[in-house]
């Protein structure tokens, strides 16, 4: 597949098109591509899901391990998000030490999920101060056609929604062959999501394809959840050097609630 990144030539065309509110695939600037969720892609995981948004495809698996609590939070379980930009997913990804993008992706997913509070860590304690569940969320893009962070968060949350707590043997080890004891302690009815706004020229838009993403000046990833009818921003990270203006940020804030509800609505049919 293509080794050539989006050229400045094409970037200028995007700039002009976006200013007119147009995209090659006919979407509006804030439209997501088609979303497809497949649950239980690995029966060896405690929960798993694969989410496709357009041609971007991310698989996430949840593994539970028995760990010790952090000294400053003896009454809480742990979350760990890891993952890698596997070379299967793009001609740009290579084997070897992780590049910054590969480090940042799981961190952004981690913060969106952790800070949303969807997982009740207090209920992940086995023996207070001694033994707790560690929820490991492994994020693997299988095909990168842009907007990996938003898609990875969707897949991670979908996997968490179906994850089960495994039974324990008498010796305290996990019994993988016994019936799981129940779902993870989730406190959210909705899906926390990330919405990453991308900026090119004067235009702000969502869910870029890879060629659109490569043409962008900068982006801001926002973790979002909803509690008792209220929308909450739980995490934020600006990427890229071009600044965002106050007017642009205000516009994003106005878009968030509608977008949150729309995406949650679209996810319903897969549950």
């Amino acid at each position: 597949m293509s080794s050539m990144e989006t050229s400045n030539l094409t970037g200028r065309t995007f700039r002009k098109m976006f200013a007119e509110g147009k995209r090659f695939d006919g979407r509006g600037l804030n439209d997501f591509r088609a979303i497809e969720v497949t649950y239980n892609v690995s029966n060896k995981a405690e929960g798993s899901a694969r989410v496709k948004v357009g041609k971007t495809d991310v698989a996430v698996g949840i593994k539970l391990e028995i760990g010790t609590p952090y000294p400053d939070s003896p009454d809480k379980g742990n979350i760990m998000v890891s993952g890698d930009l596997l070379p299967i997913a793009s001609p740009r990804f290579e084997t070897g030490p992780p590049k910054f993008n590969a480090i940042e992706l799981p961190r952004l997913v981690d913060r969106a999920i952790r800070e949303s509070g969807m997982l009740d860590l207090h209920k992940l304690v086995i023996t207070p101060g001694e033994k707790v569940w560690t929820v490991i969320i492994d994020v693997y893009p299988l095909n990168d056609d842009g907007n990996l962070v938003d898609v990875a968060t969707l897949a991670a949350v979908a996997a968490l929604k179906t994850a089960k707590l495994p039974a324990l043997k008498e010796n305290g080890k996990i019994d993988y062959h016994a019936k799981p004891t129940g779902p993870l302690p989730l406190s959210s009815e909705t899906y926390p999501i990330t919405l990453t706004f991308y900026k090119l020229g004067e235009s702000i838009f969502l869910d870029p394809t890879r060629e659109e993403e490569e043409a962008c000046d900068s982006r801001v990833a926002l973790g979002l959840s909803k509690w008792n009818g209220k929308y909450m921003i739980n995490s934020c990270q600006k990427g890229g050097e071009t600044p965002f203006t106050k007017a642009e940020l205000e516009k994003m804030m106005d878009l968030l609630p509608g977008k949150f509800d729309e995406i949650n609505e679209r996810l319903k049919k897969f549950l």
Binding site: S2, L9, T10, T13, F24, E211
Partner: peptide, 9 residues
């Protein structure tokens, strides 16, 4: 050299 328009694959 290409001066305007865009390219895709």
């Amino acid at each position: 050299k290409i001066e305007g328009g865009f390219i895709f694959r």
